[in-house]
Design a protein around this nucleic acid. Structure first.
Lengths: 211, 211
DNA sequence: GTCTATAGATTGATAGAC
DNA sequence: GTCTATCAATCTATAGAC
């Protein structure tokens, strides 16, 4: 673990273990051992294991959401200035690109993205809400922006398709380049740029599919 | 729990709890209590908690995969008979429709579909492989069939898009009609047929998106 | 803030009577 | 096949010395 204060080392370790082993399958003993911290330090710094999870998610998601929201607002502002409708592709890109760019910025970030990618389907409601409460505002912003971009698409269809998009993204965020197919015949090279490119094309086509 | 033998009651209970609470968050005590069975009966009938998970998945997934494979083969056979290419839409439908139909067939089936929807992003490798080993063959069949249907699409792009489709499906299978958005303004009525219909349109458009 | 020690509860698994 | 009783390990959380 890097040389920094205990609190940060615990956050880094928790990020890694929660992502790779799962929240319930990570014990504070293994965690504090990895973080080179004392078993008691988790409760001293964070109060409980669940509050630690909350802190792990907040540390990265709040800044990421700020970036995504700024980019979306920029697309909206530019469209308004030119008196045209905002483009669905630009809006989706403003949401997706920072996420996957962030994923590639560091090993910890990769673990984090994997963690929140899975949060959407987390069975434990406490864990899931920990993520959803922080993600809900930006999803609302995106929904409203896309509704401006595609006014002819009924809201209930738009929100359904947005759910599909979240599902696709979650999957990419969890798996990254790792294939779901145990298929030795077909390796997946897929560098970062190709992956983003393909993901954009896929979700844009899905979003704009005929009613 | 229904009146049937202990083994079945344990399978039913495990299906429900593994799906709703998660595998690691489900204790054998709570499980055997729900199944009205003795604590020791799990190890007697299945050997271990992990073997129980294996049994839970096998019981439903093997028959379901058989149905999906038959439907895919039927599409392929009909196309060959008429000397035309199989349709991508027919193939996707052969894979997706039985899955979501099965999901609606009983409460237990719904839990099961939710469970395997999440298996793809399960962090614990043992649990994930438990599912992947059984899912891999049918995914291979689907991939090869779609490659026939869309020969102009490079295999590495096809497999990437198939991954996206699996992600979208997983999400629908996990969440069902339950929204990812904590948005009281926008309820999601989405009956079964509309959901399948929208899902088909979304993934087909994504699969056939321009390169 | 960091440590040791431990409480107090829960876990998966098993032994052995019936 | 089903039961009780229990083991040995593990867990989160806390108390209290330093």
């Amino acid at each position: 673990m890097a040389q920094c204060d205990t609190k940060t080392r615990i956050l880094d370790g928790a990020e890694q273990l929660f992502a790779r082993e799962g929240f319930h399958n990570t014990s504070l003993r293994v965690l504090t051992n990895l973080a080179e911290a004392n078993l008691a330090s988790v409760n001293y710094h964070f109060g409980s294991k669940e509050s630690l999870l909350q802190a792990v998610i907040e540390r990265r998601l709040l800044p990421l959401n700020k970036i995504r929201e700024e980019k979306i607002r920029k697309v909206l502002a530019l469209a308004e200035k030119n008196s045209i409708l905002p483009g669905a592709e630009d809006l989706l890109r403003a949401f997706i690109e920072p996420t996957l760019e962030f994923r590639n910025s560091s090993p910890g970030a990769r673990d984090f993205i994997s963690l929140i990618g899975r949060s959407l389907s987390e069975p434990d409601e406490t864990v899931r809400n920990c993520f959803l409460d922080l993600a809900s505002p930006i999803l609302q912003v995106l929904f409203k922006a896309l509704h401006q971009a595609l006014p002819q698409l009924p809201p209930e269809i738009l929100i359904t398709r947005l759910q599909f998009i979240m599902g696709t993204m979650s999957h990419v965020m969890c798996m990254g380049n790792h294939s779901a197919f145990n298929n030795p015949e077909l390796p997946l090279p897929l560098d970062h740029n190709t992956l983003v490119d393909q993901l954009m094309k896929f979700v844009l086509a899905g979003l704009e599919a005929p009613k």
